[in-house]
Design a protein around this nucleic acid. Sequence first.
DNA 1: ATGCATGAGTC
DNA 2: ACTCATGCATA
Length: 205
Amino acid sequence: MAAPDGAVVSTPGHAPHMAGMNPMHPAALGMAHAHGLPAHMSCMSDVDADPRDLEAFAERFKQRRIKLGVTQADVGSALANLKIPGVGSLSQSTICRFESLTLSHNNMIALKPILQAWLEEAEKSHREKLAKPELFSGAEKKRKRTSIAAPEKRSLEAYFALQPRPSSEKIAAIAEKLDLKKNVVRVWFCNQRQKQKRMKYSAGI
DNA sequence: ATGCATGAGTC
DNA sequence: ACTCATGCATA
């Protein structure tokens, strides 16, 4: 259950990505600074939502979403109906991560205005519940998810602690040692690094 | 809710 | 080859 109704979606098999998160992303333009902070930081960014606001919003968002009896997946697909330029649908995963703040700060800031817009629309038309026509249900290619066993995972974490960015050669060596595909190891390191940058556990915020 | 994966944009 | 936003599949 993905693409709601091949409307704004350009590529038939894939939802539009939010290509590069520019500090001036169109979707993030509507939110300026809503707090009365005395600006005296060296670098001035128009779009600076501090973590408190994001945290508060994410929480209210989830609470109201549930109040409306809407699932994370519902929100994701409903976003396409907002017809916001450059904004298509999102997955349950992303909505979930937004609510739990497990996204990068920049990602949170880019998504906030979009989800805020949806929330307002949803609460406004609370009475007139619209039926979503589920268009396709074809049986497509199933991606398989490799599962790294605990022992291997522990080794990877140990390597990561020593060297978060191993060279290609090093990755190959690790892969062979753990009997894993080199690509699996490479992706694991990428994901591990990305994990460190997620909002909730990031230091300095 | 979260692990592994993809793809666009960069460097 | 990496980062970043994002998602399918699965626990």
